[in-house]
Design a protein around this nucleic acid. Sequence first.
DNA 1: TATTATAGTGAACGAAAGGTCACTTGTCAA
DNA 2: TTGACAAGTGACCTTTCGTTCACTATAATA
Lengths: 204, 204
Amino acid sequence: MAKDTKERILETALQMFSQNGYAGTNVRELTASLGLVKSSMYKHFESKEAIWNALLDKMIAYYDERFGSSEHLPPVPDSLEGLVQMTMGMVNFTIHDEKIIMTRKVLAIEQYRDERARGLATKHFLTGLTDMFTPVLAGMMDKGLLRRDDPRMLAFAYTAPISALIHLCDREPEKTEDAIAQVEAFSRHFVKVYGKGDQEQRQS
Amino acid sequence: MAKDTKERILETALQMFSQNGYAGTNVRELTASLGLVKSSMYKHFESKEAIWNALLDKMIAYYDERFGSSEHLPPVPDSLEGLVQMTMGMVNFTIHDEKIIMTRKVLAIEQYRDERARGLATKHFLTGLTDMFTPVLAGMMDKGLLRRDDPRMLAFAYTAPISALIHLCDREPEKTEDAIAQVEAFSRHFVKVYGKGDQEQRQS
DNA sequence: TATTATAGTGAACGAAAGGTCACTTGTCAA
DNA sequence: TTGACAAGTGACCTTTCGTTCACTATAATA
């Protein structure tokens, strides 16, 4: 039963770091919320900083596994509406997955003092979504769904506003509904501007 | 000579909070970097938290004064190139002004635990630029420079990617040159997509 | 000149921080 | 049954934190 204490410490650390930051979290509170006393923590980690490093390792590994490989690229939609739907699905996932929310928060907090956090923050907040959508939009151009243009520029123009709205949900969760509506409105605006018309691809 | 100590404390606090956060900053370091001992701070602020609150007051007041009133709206450019140039000017300013950089950083760090910081963060990171560019783009539509469309949606689509690149400069200053080039490339992409052609407006 | 307010000092304080250690408990293999 | 080990405990340590306070120096005011 107590075998996964190390894991539970990391979970709680992510939770607390994402709310109050590394410096604003103390190990007594952290272990207490697990029903332990602080000295118990040192059976699993040699220091508070070791928790932080292990947590970063995990976040980096999770990111690479989940978003790093080209196998996890989303499929190229068969219609403009398909792009909208795929986008909404991804956004709905990422703004409701507690672990990913907390990861973004902790990266936002620690990005200026920790180099590894900084690197991962850039992936989460900027390059990650762009990299993911670049081949998607390129594929849609190949299918004649989107105007030919620099796919990377289009992916950036598409994902950066969405990323901003995801941030808004992290910061002010009570605005989540509005933000989702805005994402959809923006996505539809995007396909209206860059799309080449949906009708000729409508099949089944 | 020592009359502005209170002001200097706030300056140094902004600097340190923006690097290590509120919890990661201690008053001994803070006052030492001003050539004072820590107890001197309490002649000017009644607590460490009072510094934080005063700093937030200042940041909010500065934002309202600088970006809040409609008098400070940028003029509507007379050409698409004018929009690009105005954008580059604003971006160049905002990514080189140390005080504004540090303000953004501290808001990014503290946005999840402090409600006032959260509100100001949303302005800085999302609504501020959009609000500023909405009338600009609307004006350009009136002048026939841009395709007619929802000006607020266009402003959002225009400013969110730029905002993301500003963030990148805050996070990884060594990428500033690249980021500036990306801003310009994106701005030109934007006017190419939404513009109605520059030639008929070319005068003097 | 005498007074008073202001800014700064250094010693001290209590609380809270991260961390250590001897010890107990429970589990499992030999 | 015994031995070994991992996990957890509570007391304790050192350091650092924010904060207080009696005191000094200085400059303006009466």
